[in-house]
Amino acid sequence: MNRKICVITGTRAEYGLLRWIMQGIKDDPELSLQIIATGMHLSPEFGLTYRAIEQDGFVIDRKVEMMLSSDTPVGIAKSMGLGLIGFADALNDLQPDLLVVLGDRFEIFSAVSAALVARIPVAHLHGGESTEGAIDEAFRHSITKMSHLHFVAAEAYRQRVIQLGEQSERVFLVGGLGIDNIKRLRLLDRTSLEEALDFQFGAKNLLVTFHPVTLETATASCQMAELLAALADLPDTRLIFTLPNADTDGRVLIEMVEQFVAEHGNARAYASLGQLRYLSCIAQVDGVVGNSSSGLLEAPSFRKGSVNIGDRQKGRLLAGSVIGCEPTRESIAAALEHLYSAEFQESLHDVVNPYGEGGASEKVIETLKRYDLSGIVKKTFNDL
Rank of each mutant, 00 (worst) to 15 (best):
N2P: 02
N2G: 00
T9E: 03
L17A: 05
R19Q: 15
M22L: 09
K26P: 03
D27M: 09
P29N: 14
S32R: 13
L33E: 11
S43Y: 00
F46M: 05
F46G: 07
L48Q: 09
R51N: 01
E54A: 01
G57N: 00
I60P: 08
D61F: 04
R62G: 08
R62M: 01
R62S: 03
K63W: 03
E65H: 13
D71I: 08
T72D: 01
V74E: 14
G75V: 12
I76K: 13
M80H: 10
G81E: 15
G83E: 05
A88I: 03
A90T: 01
L91M: 01
N92R: 03
V101D: 00
D104S: 11
D104I: 00
F106T: 09
L116E: 08
A118D: 00
I120K: 00
P121L: 04
H126L: 09
H126G: 15
H126C: 15
H126Q: 15
T131R: 13
E132I: 02
E132C: 04
A134Y: 05
H141T: 01
M146I: 01
H150P: 10
A156Y: 09
R158D: 08
L164G: 02
Q167R: 11
S168N: 13
V171P: 04
F172A: 02
V174A: 14
G178M: 05
G178D: 08
I179N: 12
I182K: 14
K183F: 07
L185T: 09
L187P: 13
D198I: 00
D198A: 12
F199Y: 15
A203E: 02
L207M: 14
L207H: 08
P212E: 06
P212N: 06
T214R: 12
T217P: 13
A218I: 07
A218G: 08
M224K: 07
A225V: 10
A230S: 11
A232E: 15
F241A: 01
P244R: 02
P244Q: 08
A246Y: 13
D247Q: 07
D247T: 02
T248Q: 14
T248W: 04
D249Y: 06
G250D: 04
R251V: 11
V252M: 13
I254T: 12
M256G: 11
M256N: 07
V257S: 09
E263H: 14
N266T: 05
R268G: 01
R268K: 13
S272P: 07
G274I: 03
G274Y: 03
Q275R: 07
L279V: 05
Q284N: 08
D286E: 11
G287E: 02
N291I: 06
G295D: 08
L296W: 06
L297N: 03
F302M: 00
G305P: 12
V307W: 09
G310A: 14
D311T: 06
Q313M: 05
L317C: 10
L317R: 12
L318S: 05
G320V: 09
I323P: 13
C325L: 11
E326L: 10
P327G: 14
T328W: 02
R329H: 15
S331G: 10
S331N: 10
I332E: 07
A333M: 06
E346F: 03
L348Y: 05
H349F: 09
D350K: 11
V351Y: 10
V351S: 05
G359K: 00
E362M: 07
E366S: 06
Y371V: 13
Y371M: 12
D372A: 11
G375S: 06
K378I: 08
